[in-house]
Simulated assay, not measured.
Amino acid sequence: MQGKTVLITGATNGIGRATAEALILQSAEVWLVGRNPEKTAEVQAQLGAAGFLLADLSLRGEAERVARDFAERVGKLDVLINNAGAIYDRRQESREGIELTWALNHLAYFIVTRELLPLLRESRGRVVNVSSAAHVGGKIRWNDPEFKTGYSAWAAYGQSKLANILFTRELAYRERDHGVTANALHPGMVASGFGRNNEGLGKLLKLVQPLSLSDEQGAQTSIYLASSPDVEGLSGLYFSNKRVTEPAAQALDDAAARRLWKLSESYL
């Protein structure tokens, strides 16, 4: 990764941080996106990252701004890793009035990537989208993607992870003539801080922690997709354990992928 520039969202915890650390060890110039100023600065210093940017990615304006700031400050991008995400046991809205799971787990991916496409086209770069096997139970609620009625944490999360794959496939199709590749992945069940912001879900995740992967293990597929020559030119695919894996049938619906793109644009 010598000479390659990488931007990672959600890079101060869990697999995001582990991915950053591994790519820095491969000599990449890694930039971190975090929300907490003190923590993000601390992680940058600990890892020796090239720099960091601050943003609350659940806010559309912040997602746009951080991408533009990066483009102005750095001006080069070879790999974008959309990693930031969360699950919420009760329905919450961002300051912009958008349900948080949808805002952070899907719209942030869409907005940051869209803003950085000019740089990625220049480098014929890679987009790596962290999804989840939770997409298997996901369904896009076209008339109510923000769960204004009938909210369920797992349903909202599953929808967002399905959206990650559909977005990846449509992005790969749209960028096929520009040299930009896009792939999604399942990191595995990771024993990180994910989900610990929820009382009920946090207890459940703590119970399964002994069966879970470490952050370093969970980061392996992200690292592979960001750096391996084996995936050069591959695009629109879903990976698990560093292997191409068939996602659920609803994640292969190209009409749904196009429809999701249009729905996402309606938030801009």
Rank of each mutant, 00 (worst) to 15 (best):
R114L: 03
R121P: 03
A163C: 14
V66I: 10
D56K: 06
W142E: 11
N129F: 01
Y151F: 15
A156I: 08
I87V: 14
R95S: 08
R91L: 13
A191F: 11
L107A: 12
R126F: 00
N83C: 03
E96N: 02
H106Y: 09
R176A: 15
L53F: 15
E96R: 01
A156T: 03
G51P: 08
T181R: 01
M189I: 15
A67G: 02
G158A: 14
Y157P: 01
S131K: 04
A156K: 01
A182P: 11
E64W: 02
V190L: 12
Y151K: 11
A71R: 00
A163N: 07
L120M: 05
N129D: 07
H178N: 14
G138S: 04
A172C: 12
A172M: 09
G150K: 10
E115P: 03
D78C: 03
R68A: 06
R176H: 09
A103S: 13
R126W: 02
R124I: 09
A156G: 11
E175M: 15
V74H: 03
R174H: 09
A67M: 00
A55Y: 01
L54T: 04
A71Q: 00
S131V: 01
Y173A: 15
R68M: 04
N83P: 01
Y88F: 15
K76W: 04
R174T: 12
V112K: 02
D69P: 00
K76T: 08
A55S: 05
F70A: 05
K148F: 12
R124P: 06
D56V: 08
V112A: 00
R169A: 13
P187R: 10
A134Y: 07
A86G: 14
E64F: 00
R60T: 01
E170G: 09
A63T: 02
P187D: 14
V136H: 07
L80W: 03
R126E: 00
D89G: 10
G48Y: 12
V136M: 06
L119Y: 04
L117A: 11
K139E: 13
E146W: 05
H178P: 04
Y173K: 15
A108F: 10
S94I: 13
S132P: 10
K139P: 04
V66C: 03
W142V: 11
I165Y: 10
R90T: 14
A182G: 11
A84T: 06
H186L: 14
I165R: 09
F70E: 04
E96Q: 05
I81A: 03
L120R: 00
A156C: 10
H186N: 15
V180Q: 01
A191R: 14
R169M: 14
I98V: 15
G125K: 03
A71W: 00
V128R: 02
V130L: 08
S152F: 10
H135N: 05
A156Q: 06
W102D: 09
